[in-house]
């Protein structure tokens, strides 16, 4: 009798461990599947530099600059030469040169959150952004930007 009860106890313990394992595995899968996006506003910039510096590094050797800055959080500062809104309601601030400068894209969610600072970012003013460098086309592109 005691033996049967002991066996049952062991079985119940195993059952609980098994169930806990399944719950952990399921929640881990759910988390990974719906993992949150990088929150740039909470990240510390790896590099802080001005727009001119960043452009000249990319012009000098694109491969080296890409290897250094791609996907890194950077803080970049420069004169705002152009502002435009994309169809997806993101805003692009061109620093140093409208065509071949640094394009900082602020997503629509972050425009709402930072509207007070962004109102001061007019043509001719100095703009400072923190974002993720995505490389160079004509311009050096920095995406998911937040104003600083």
């Amino acid at each position: 009798m005691i033996q049967i009860m002991r066996k049952r106890k062991v079985f119940v313990i195993f059952l609980w461990i098994f169930l806990a394992g399944i719950i952990i595995a399921l929640s881990a899968t759910y988390y990974i599947f719906n993992m949150p996006r990088r929150n740039i506003s909470r990240e510390k910039p790896v590099y802080t530099l001005n727009a001119k510096q960043l452009i000249s590094e990319f012009r000098k050797d694109e491969a080296v600059a890409t290897a250094r800055y791609l996907d890194q959080t950077i803080a970049v500062k420069g004169e705002i030469k152009g502002i435009r809104t994309l169809d997806n309601h993101s805003m692009v601030f061109s620093l140093d040169d409208e065509m071949e400068g640094v394009s900082c894209t602020v997503d629509s969610v972050d425009i709402v959150k930072n509207s007070a600072i962004l109102k001061q970012f007019i043509k001719g003013a100095t703009g400072s952004f923190k974002g993720r460098c995505s490389g160079m086309l004509m311009d050096v592109q920095v995406i998911n930007c937040v104003p600083e």
Partner: peptide, 17 residues
């Protein structure tokens, strides 16, 4: 045409990764 591949936005962050 040219486009930076990291500029593509997906519904899920995992897909982007």
């Amino acid at each position: 045409f040219s486009v930076l591949t990291t500029s593509f936005k997906f519904r899920r962050a995992l897909m982007e990764e």
